[in-house]
Amino acid sequence: MWRSYAFRVTVQGLLTLWAVTTFTFVMIRKMPGNPVEVVIDQLIDRQQLSYEEARQQAAGLFDFDPGQPLIEQYADYMNKLLHGDMGKSISSAGTPVANQIKRYLPWTLFSVGSGLIISFTLGVLLGMAMAYWRGSVFDNVLTAAASLMYGIPDFIIALLLLLVAGVQLKLFSMEDVLGGVGQDVHAGLNLPYLKSVVQHAALPVITYVWGTVGGWILTMKSSTISTLGEDYIMVAKARGLPERRILTAYVGRNAMLPLVTRLAISIGFVVGGSVIIEFIFQYPGLGRQLAMAIGTRDYTTMQGIFLVIASAVVFSNILADLLFGMLDPRVRVGGEE
């Protein structure tokens, strides 16, 4: 039974990936402009070349023919992909897309992943506490704070952190917070490197947590309030079960169900990074790389990153299905009794 479910899910996942890959392949190429045209415009503007000169020069910079029929490009791409080759970057000829992903993905996983874990944990704990003591000063203050935090865009927080805490209050030097790691430390499993990595991730993580924790708090609070009104909670109380057991085994577990799906989707999107935050803090993540690839119409890099994001979302959704079944015994995998 489990095997057939796993097989079904795997096939579904692969089909989804193929569909997403094909869809993004076509959509990317339907975007206005192509890598060569973008560079032609840049050469004309920056070097005052004529269109013909710029076209000639741009053609010399790319191993890419925008005139090649779409179906041929697609066949080439899929053929390479099936052989485990994501191709080479168009805008940086000779640079394998796999190397780009290897370079940037860990930073995004670390920063956005840490941010998500912290944000989710804080949100669940505070949301539950607020629901439990609903109507209290604690609840009212935190509800207002959560709404406020959720309502402020993350890039405003990022800029405020840099301009107020960094520039005006001089709480830190820019050199210590911009980028993924300090320039003078040697990469490896040594304390200075790890400290530098954590130090440089601090502001992106704080910004991410600030921008998302409000949503988790409010969702958890409303879910917990709804769970607290359920009959089985009353029954549990009537049976004289300890408060702690009711809170963890009855309330917490059931209230978290709606958050699990959301968490799974969020985990999927962790690999996409947080584009604006990465831009502002010069954090070398995949989100920033994707935005740059879109700007330069680097088709192969975009496709590679979209494939990784799609794979993560598909995988995390499968994980969510499995987790849901574990958390709620009423849910049977595949709808079977």
Binding site: T121, D176, V177, K195, V198, Q199, V205
Partner: peptide
């Protein structure tokens, strides 16, 4: 989580 944030903010300037 809090320690992570504090460590990041208190690191000395290079």
């Amino acid at each position: 989580a809090l320690a992570f944030a504090v460590l990041g903010m208190m690191a000395p300037a290079r």
